[in-house]
């Protein structure tokens, strides 16, 4: 902990001295966040719309939220989607990270492995959907539903984890591990204390991708949902095909963004509060 602080400090301080606050950068960042949240703000607005359209605001009402909380099918679909997305993220993270480490150094066959691990990015969704459907039902005898969806989601998300983790490992200083080994750490200890913390951001990013991909997938999932196991995106698409996107779904979207944003703000508050406490303690030790 203290080590990271000492290495980082001298790096940033002179930078600030030279350039001051990076105003141009801050403006750019605000614009990008504006881009990311503009449609969300719009969704939040129309979720309180009194008419069925999500494109024009005609008047205020909360009845879409009221309908949402009563709609068991949406809630059930959401539950299934979350379970699959979480499971897929866990499996992808473990399997993908292992694979990325496997590809770290050259060996015979690395090129072939790379090709295989890149393929899922390229296979068109509908092709993956129908071929997996055929595979599960005819060849493997795996019933459609949770497990089939999980297997498919892992298959198409795995590459994302591998690519991100590999990009972090690329050119990573192997001397750190050697130093750890020289200091008497076993390979596992060296991995846990040196390598893992260094790749942790990439692993986190990879699992976020796996979650996101699974959570949003429609085309492939629509072929693999079984009796009584509809995921949320598939449900939403089905509804949209007859009546356009239902404001109920917009209300759900708003609620989910709202809740996660709230959790995020709480997190920020906690971090700030902790940092203040730590800061005070540091002041004390310095004074003492």
């Amino acid at each position: 902990m203290s080590q990271t602080v000492t290495t980082r400090e001298p790096a940033t301080r002179p930078a600030r001295r030279r350039t001051g606050r990076p105003w141009a950068l801050i403006v750019a960042v605000c614009l990008v966040f504006g881009f990311l949240y503009a449609p969300i703000v719009w969704l939040a607005l129309v979720s309180f719309n009194d008419s069925r359209t999500v494109s024009r605001f005609t008047g205020f009402s909360t009845h879409w939220y009221a309908e949402l909380v009563q709609d068991e099918r949406v809630i059930a679909a959401l539950g299934l989607t979350l379970r699959i997305a979480l499971s897929s993220a866990v499996v992808c993270t473990i399997v993908g990270t292992l694979a990325a480490f496997g590809l770290r150094r050259t060996f015979r066959g690395r090129g072939l492995w790379t090709v295989v691990l890149t393929l899922p990015l390229v296979v068109p969704e509908v092709v993956m959907g129908v071929s997996l459907l055929a595979f599960f039902v005819k060849l493997a005898g795996i019933p459609l539903g949770f497990w089939a969806l999980l297997a498919a989601h892992v298959a198409f998300s795995l590459s994302f984890v591998v690519v991100v983790v590999r990009s972090r490992l690329a050119g990573m200083d192997t001397r750190l591990q050697e130093a750890a080994a020289d200091l008497g750490a076993g390979p596992l200890t060296a991995f846990r204390t040196v390598t893992l913390p260094l790749v942790a951001p990439a692993i986190a990013a990879g699992s976020a991708f796996a979650f996101l991909l699974s959570f949003d997938d429609v085309v492939i999932s629509s072929y693999l949902t079984g009796v009584g196991s509809t995921t949320l995106p598939v449900f939403v698409y089905g509804q949209a095909s007859k009546r356009g996107v239902s404001p109920e779904i917009v209300a759900l979207s708003t609620a989910m963004v709202g809740v996660s944003a709230l959790l995020l703000l709480i997190g920020v508050a906690v971090v700030t509060w902790r940092a203040r406490r730590v800061g005070r303690r540091v002041d004390l030790t310095v004074a003492g």
């Binding site: 599960f136 039902v137 019933p143 459609l144 949902t225 009796v227 009584g228 698409y237």
Partner: peptide, 23 residues
Amino acid sequence: VTYDNFSSNDELEAKIATGAPGY
């Protein structure tokens, strides 16, 4: 009754062609 929904005829066709979904 278990009531599920589909969004296109193609999806329906692919599903029942496999026979497995049990509809």
